[in-house]
Computed example of a mutant assay.
Amino acid sequence: MQNKLNLRNKIVLGLALSAALVQGTVPLTNERVRRLGDQMQCKCGCYASITGCNMINCHFSDPVRTQLLKLIDEGKSDDAIIADMVAAYGKDILLKPPAEGFYLLSWLMPFVWISGGLGAIYLVLRSYLRKRPAAEGPGQIVVESADLARYRDRIDKDLSDLE
């Protein structure tokens, strides 16, 4: 009898835990909830999308998923749902910022930094190549300055003293 009671308690406990987990998460079987949730960012600190947040009983994504499901059941269009979410949580809920106003900088700055870096590399290479003397090849006449000739003579004299 004691064994059956323990088995029965284990089964009831397992069912209760399963029901609690299922109740805590909004089912993502609705394709529109998944699609719209993938366009929005979870604010629990995981920086994942609303549908990609894997925190159990997340304090942000679960209510937003429920709200998405409610808005879909009301028959609203995708654009109207996104506009409602932006009105409720601000533009920073969107994973892709809109290409307008201050958010336009987030689209433009990578290209500005890349082109600036390439321009700096070009300027450094150009100044480096400009300072380098031309290679002396066969048949080219090298004109020595008077100072260079004097130093060569001094080196030759010092080397002859060593021998």
Score class of each variant (00 low, 15 high):
Met1Asp: 11
Gln2Ala: 15
Gln2Cys: 07
Gln2Leu: 12
Asn3Gly: 08
Lys4Ser: 11
Asn6Thr: 09
Asn6Ala: 12
Leu7Thr: 14
Leu7Val: 12
Ile11Val: 14
Gly14Leu: 13
Gly14His: 10
Gly14Gln: 13
Ala16Phe: 08
Ala16Ile: 10
Ala19Gly: 08
Ala19Tyr: 11
Ala20Ser: 13
Ala20Asp: 09
Leu21Phe: 12
Val22His: 12
Val22Leu: 14
Val22Trp: 08
Thr25Gly: 07
Val26Ser: 01
Leu28Ser: 01
Glu31Gln: 10
Arg34Trp: 04
Arg35Met: 09
Leu36Val: 09
Leu36His: 01
Leu36Asn: 01
Gln39Asp: 08
Met40Asn: 00
Lys43Trp: 06
Cys44Gln: 03
Cys44Gly: 05
Gly45Pro: 01
Tyr47Ser: 14
Ala48Asn: 11
Ser49His: 02
Ser49Lys: 01
Ile50Thr: 01
Ile50Leu: 05
Ile50Met: 01
Thr51Trp: 00
Asn57Thr: 12
Phe60Thr: 02
Asp62Gln: 15
Asp62Trp: 02
Asp62Tyr: 04
Pro63Met: 04
Val64Phe: 01
Arg65Pro: 00
Thr66Glu: 13
Thr66Ser: 13
Gln67Met: 14
Leu68His: 00
Leu68Lys: 00
Leu68Cys: 02
Leu68Glu: 00
Lys70Gln: 14
Ile72Phe: 04
Ile72Val: 12
Ile72Cys: 03
Asp73Ser: 13
Lys76Gln: 09
Lys76His: 12
Ser77Tyr: 02
Asp79Gly: 05
Ala80Met: 06
Met85Asp: 00
Ala87Arg: 14
Ala88Ser: 15
Gly90Asn: 04
Gly90Tyr: 03
Lys91His: 06
Leu94Ile: 03
Leu94Tyr: 03
Leu95Cys: 07
Lys96Ile: 15
Pro98Trp: 05
Pro98Leu: 10
Ala99Thr: 07
Glu100Gly: 03
Gly101Ala: 04
Phe102Lys: 09
Phe102Pro: 02
Ser106Cys: 05
Pro110Asn: 03
Pro110Ser: 05
Phe111Lys: 07
Ile114Phe: 06
Gly117Ala: 07
Leu118Asp: 03
Ala120Pro: 02
Ile121Phe: 09
Leu123Asn: 08
Leu125Glu: 08
Arg126Gln: 10
Arg126Gly: 05
Ser127Met: 08
Tyr128Cys: 06
Leu129Ala: 08
Leu129His: 09
Lys131Asp: 07
Arg132Asn: 04
Glu136Leu: 15
Gly137His: 11
Pro138Leu: 10
Pro138Gly: 09
Gly139Thr: 03
Gly139Trp: 04
Gln140Ala: 10
Gln140Asn: 13
Val143Ser: 10
Ser145Thr: 15
Ala146Trp: 07
Ala146Tyr: 06
Arg152Met: 10
Arg152Ile: 11
Ile155Arg: 11
Lys157Leu: 10
Leu159Lys: 07
Leu159Ile: 11
Ser160Asp: 13
Asp161Gly: 09
Glu163Arg: 14
Glu163Phe: 10
